[in-house]
Design a protein around this nucleic acid. Structure first.
Lengths: 347, 347
DNA sequence: CTGTTAGCGCCTTCAG
DNA sequence: CTGAAGGCGCTAACAG
């Protein structure tokens, strides 16, 4: 035996029939004698035959493999999205190959090439925080390979995408802080390269505006999401002549890092400073005090992204997004109120 | 154009040479005229040619794909291991396809079949907590496909594996509790199906024995790692006539869940009950009080597993582990002491 | 140094 | 209903 694996040829030989017939029997082609078919099926079963999807892909020019490209897998957010996506993909007979790049743009470009080289049938992407050049994604689209973005999208590119109502979520989060009496609300925002950053920041600004609270530019800082720097920015906030009485951050890790700094400064949360994060990571529930944050429907984001992708893959008419507007899905978030903004009853 | 992708044939045609020559030029075969080679390379570059690894695999009967099979990806443990493994694999020119199964035995079996069908060159596995039957893994070995276990291994099977010193880690964790004066130390253990459970439990028992503390069977419970049940077991412990003054758990999520129950009962950590977990999940640092726990070198576990696997893949002599003992690597752990056992200085 | 041929596993014509 | 032949993209063995 040359290979560890058995092929339709092995079956054909043992049954003294042609491999075409075996292939037909296996794929359920109608014109095969029932008896032949059952003999093939039986032997295949017995030999533990599994067809080689790679060879199939080569012959049919599709692989049934979907690439999922995310910036990281250490938080709970991306793994949950992946799980949701895989659920839908598996159901449809697709398998996923997951790539992560530790937020590195170069790794992202390499990974897209890798996925392309494996002739994936489609790609689901959340780009890195460094990504400002979208040529590699445009190339994918130009080649006619279905592409879906989630969470982090680009307005330069017309790509089907799944997002949450970042603007509204931020708006409501800040409004919550205003309702509990805060007036000097700081915002530690993400990098401008992320569209979410802009939307959440706008939500923040508009909430202040609605409630006639003047915007203090000193209270807004954009940063690159490297947690080590949070200390610097929070210290800066706290040392302002008029320090903030609340903080809204771009994500939960930032909020949690900030809480540590605030506590070390001897300030109390939420009494001196109320804190609100974003995403409802697992850790938001675990820190003490519990972190008020915006919950995202992560599994559903994954499922929707997969659905959008499958639509494009299976659609008979090729959707040309250089002409036609790409579909998008916007999912609802939910503000989870915990002790970092509102003291627990009876404590 | 029939395909979205360009092949060596396209290059060959444009250059009026044979595809073999193109292939040779591309793979760096020595006997190719330098000029021919450079013309090929140039055109390949210009056409953005990427060779199809699937076709390569078909021709060479290897895919350069490694399967990584883990029970879940929502904690920080498995993602870190995966990242470590991929680091080594990528360096060696291999790509990983990651499968997770949400601790379901059936999904695990399906996933191994999936990986086999893709003709992966090797598989790295941490099996589910439900796995008691290892036939599917044995089958992989019998087919001569390199296999490496990590974290969760089986003593029924002779498979190369990477583990940590579970026994010693548990021993030292419990000894730490004894040294801070605890005498009634409870142990919430994992299911018997996991070898780690047994080893950690033995470490627990031996530490007690060494310090001449009688073992109270009421203080040891094995459970199936479904967090919802932690409440029951902890309540049981607390309602014993002589409740424990310390708790050692099989992992961090269990410890954290337990801490919640303990606090709700109005008891103080560590004064009334000191708590030690296992693994040093991200959340161990975030909960309050910080959780004393055993840190595992997760990245290194992944790297070692990948190295072991690559050894088997590249070794010219086929290692037959039905005769020869499989290599194993045992890595050191480190006890991280936090406030769940020892009050912080100056607080 | 280069072209020809065959074959990896599978499907899909095209003839019977 | 079935077999033979061709091709997907690539490499390897064999001639030159």
């Amino acid at each position: 035996m040359k290979s560890k694996y058995i092929s339709i040829i092995d079956i054909a030989k043992q049954l003294h029939i042609s491999k075409s017939t075996v292939s037909r029997a296996l794929t359920g082609h109608p014109s095969v004698h029932p008896e032949t078919r059952s003999r093939v099926l039986e032997l295949a079963q017995k030999l533990d035959y599994q067809r080689n999807p790679l060879a199939l892909g080569l012959a049919r020019n599709n692989t049934n493999i979907i690439g999922i490209l995310v910036p990281e897998i250490m938080s709970t957010y991306f793994p949950s999205v992946i799980i949701g996506a895989q659920e839908v993909l598996h159901e449809a007979g697709y398998n996923a190959i997951i790539c992560h790049n530790n937020e590195s743009y170069n790794a992202e470009v390499l990974n897209t090439k890798l996925l392309l080289s494996y002739h994936v049938d489609g790609i689901i992407v959340s780009h890195t925080k460094e990504t400002r050049n979208f040529d590699h994604f445009q190339m994918i689209q130009r080649r006619g390979i279905p592409l879906v973005f989630f969470n982090r999208t680009s307005d330069e590119l017309n790509v089907p995408h799944v997002v949450v109502d970042d603007y509204e979520a931020a708006f409501r989060a800040v409004e919550h802080l205003i309702k509990i009496g805060r007036r000097r609300i700081a915002h530690l925002a993400g990098p401008d390269s992320l569209i979410n950053t802009k939307l959440r920041q706008q939500g923040y600004l508009d909430a202040l505006k609605k409630h006639k609270i003047p915007v203090d530019p000193d209270l807004v800082i954009s940063y690159d999401l490297t947690l080590e720097k949070v200390r610097i920015y929070i210290k800066h906030f706290l040392e302002l002549p008029q320090p903030p009485d609340a903080l809204f951050t771009i994500n939960d890790p930032t909020a949690i890092a900030a809480m540590e700094v605030i506590r070390q400064k001897g300030l109390s949360i939420p009494d001196d400073i109320a804190v609100v994060g974003f995403s409802n990571d697992l850790s938001a529930r675990l820190v003490s005090p519990g972190l008020t944050t915006v919950a995202q429907p992560t599994f559903e984001i994954g499922r929707e992204a997969a659905r959008l992708l499958l639509q494009d893959i299976t659609s008979t008419v090729k959707n040309d997004y250089s002409v036609k507007k790409a579909p998008s899905v916007m999912l609802k978030t939910k503000l989870i109120i915990r002790e970092s903004t509102v003291m627990k009853q009876g404590k």
